[in-house]
Amino acid sequence: MLKVGETLKVGRGTWEKEPTDVTYQWYADLAPVPGATKDTLALTPGLVGKRLSVTLAAITKGSSLPGYSSARSSGPVRPGTLTVAAPTLKGKAKVGRKLKVRAGATLPASATVEVQWLVRGKPVVGGTTKVLRLTKALKGAKVRAQVTYAAPGYEPVVVRTRAVRVR
């Protein structure tokens, strides 16, 4: 299964007459991928859902040998998987203080990070910022943040921080 974030590589192939040069053209759903003329192809978000193939053409002493299709995926390119570290909480879990969530991930530039604070396992209305002020109403409650990471061409990832009890 091909996924965004991977790189495909195709070999030169075997020829009756050893070529002096080999040219490559990658295709997505039979349309040429602009600029994809090397033996490798990085799978980007724009390729999600497309079937890939590559054509090689050999050149021997100034003449061109027929190209051939040497690689085809077994199915469409799938969304990639974001790799994230678990988010953490910073601050003291004490009434009158603030807790801040640190996302803990290195993401593509196009990624978004959404925070939802949870108290006693339930979403806090309006609790979607990186900081939560701990009020008297929260004393004794377990608090945690749920962080959703998303980027075009990748499956979203939802991770929760460890829970802390407000003192």
Rank of each mutant, 00 (worst) to 15 (best):
G5A: 04
R12C: 01
W15R: 10
W15Y: 14
E16L: 14
P19G: 01
D21V: 13
V22G: 02
V22N: 00
T23G: 10
Q25S: 04
A28W: 10
L30T: 15
P34D: 12
K38M: 09
L41V: 13
L41S: 05
T44I: 12
G46F: 04
L47K: 07
L47F: 08
G49M: 07
R51G: 08
T55V: 15
L56A: 04
A57N: 14
T60Q: 14
T60A: 14
K61Y: 10
G62N: 08
G67V: 10
G67I: 05
S70K: 09
A71M: 11
A71D: 03
S74M: 09
R78V: 05
G80P: 06
G80H: 07
G80D: 05
T81Y: 02
V84F: 08
V84I: 11
A85Y: 02
K90T: 11
G91E: 13
A93Y: 10
A93D: 09
K94Y: 06
K94W: 03
V95A: 08
V95M: 03
G96D: 10
R97C: 02
K100R: 15
K100D: 10
A103I: 02
G104H: 06
P108Y: 06
P108Q: 06
S110V: 01
A111V: 04
E114V: 00
V124K: 04
T128W: 03
L134S: 01
T135R: 15
K136P: 09
L138I: 00
R144D: 00
Q146N: 08
Q146R: 15
Y149V: 02
A150P: 01
G153Q: 06
E155K: 12
V157Q: 06
T161L: 06
R167Y: 05
